[in-house]
């Protein structure tokens, strides 16, 4: 049993690895170098991004969500005194199925090609506080935007749902 005819010196080829940079990375520092955005699919279903000017707060995304990950949060009042609601996505529940994007009537909700979401924890926190902190931070709030790198979206294409 052999895997082809290889030279007896073939183990020495590993020596070239001495002069190469390591493949492993220091995660938070080198993140952008290692995961270039070009490698991600153009229709990748990553973290959400919502255009607040377009969003009418209809709540269709909340209704279609299979895992109850979207909550409509009141962010203010309009001139008539009615509450303005915008979606908040909880990534502890989200399954990245993209039905909320399919159903959005104004195409304001889209998915980006970002897939890394990091939460900074404070060292002085107790374990219980830290859990609560991560729970609150592991959400996409209406004022956060990842709009520069759009992945999965219905765009001009024919609507799938709704």
């Amino acid at each position: 049993m052999s895997l082809g005819d290889k030279s007896v010196y073939s183990p020495l080829t590993n020596l070239k690895n001495l002069f190469k940079k390591p493949i492993t990375v220091k995660y938070p520092k080198e993140i952008l170098k290692v995961f270039p955005k070009d490698g991600v699919s153009p229709i990748y279903r990553g973290l959400h991004t919502n255009d607040l000017n377009k969003c009418i707060g209809c709540g269709m995304c909340q209704r279609i969500c299979p895992f109850d990950a979207i909550e409509m949060k009141v962010i203010g009042e309009n001139e008539q005194g009615r509450a303005i609601k915008k979606p908040v996505v909880d990534y502890g529940r989200c399954s990245f199925c993209g039905f909320c994007v399919d159903v959005c009537p104004t195409n304001s909700l889209k998915m980006s090609r970002h897939y890394i979401y990091k939460v900074k924890t404070v060292k002085s926190m107790s374990a219980k506080e830290e859990v609560e902190h991560i729970k609150q931070k592991f959400k996409l709030m209406p004022d956060e935007s990842l709009g520069d790198d759009i992945g999965y979206n219905t765009g001009k294409a024919k609507k799938i749902l709704g």
Partner: peptide, 11 residues
């Protein structure tokens, strides 16, 4: 990922 937008659960 290129065809459906997800790697494991394609939906």
């Amino acid at each position: 990922e290129w065809l459906t937008g997800a790697r494991v659960y394609h939906m």
